[in-house]
Simulated scan of single mutants.
Amino acid sequence: MFKRALLIVFVAVSILSCGKKNVSTCPDRVCTEEFAMILMLFKDQNGPVKSLSKLSVINKRTNQPIDRGTAAAINTTPGYYLIIDDRSTKTLSESGDDILITATDSAGTKTKTATIKVAGGACACHIKKLSGPDEVQFD
């Protein structure tokens, strides 16, 4: 009797576990190991700016700031600043989100804004810039 009950439990567990499949909602894809980043050049009349006093990057769809992490380590070329990278892939929509960039010069006297469109998504391997300027000019 005990063996029969054990067999029934084993069969029931086996049948129930067959129904649980780990099905991904993302189609099969092959992602590369590269890490995508979007940089923007900030210039004034003398060329690339050496520094900014403030840089804000906001996803307009979610009204949330973009995590730029330790962006200071990436800003090794004067005037170029990290705007967004693959850490934000899952927070972006597949069709693309408008990203509002607001920068203030080092003197704190001039502020410029620009908007770029960047795509990502839950199934995306990397971010992709769809439109918008590559540089901002302080007059």
Rank of each mutant, 00 (worst) to 15 (best):
K110T: 07
Y81M: 09
S51G: 10
T91W: 06
F2Y: 06
K112T: 08
I101S: 12
V57I: 15
Y81R: 09
T115R: 06
T111R: 13
R4G: 05
F138Y: 00
A114Q: 12
S24R: 09
T102W: 01
P48C: 07
S106I: 09
K21C: 14
S17E: 13
V9L: 11
K60D: 13
T115Y: 00
I66G: 00
C31H: 03
I83F: 00
E33R: 10
N63R: 10
L92C: 10
L41I: 13
D105P: 02
E34V: 08
C125Y: 00
S14V: 12
D28S: 07
G19S: 06
L130F: 01
C26N: 14
K50D: 12
S53I: 07
V13Y: 05
T32F: 05
P48H: 02
T76Q: 11
V136R: 00
R68P: 01
A107M: 11
C123K: 08
L82G: 11
T77V: 14
I99D: 06
M40C: 15
I101W: 01
V9A: 10
H126E: 08
T32H: 07
R61E: 02
K20P: 05
A12Y: 08
D139Q: 12
R68W: 02
I58S: 04
E33A: 10
D86S: 10
A72L: 10
N63W: 02
G47W: 01
A12N: 06
A12Q: 06
T62K: 13
L100K: 15
P65I: 15
P78M: 04
A107D: 10
Q45D: 14
S51N: 14
K54L: 10
A5S: 08
A114I: 11
P65K: 15
T109C: 07
G79M: 04
L52V: 06
E33Y: 09
D134F: 00
N63Y: 05
I127C: 00
C18Q: 12
S14E: 13
L92N: 08
F35N: 09
V11H: 08
I116Q: 01
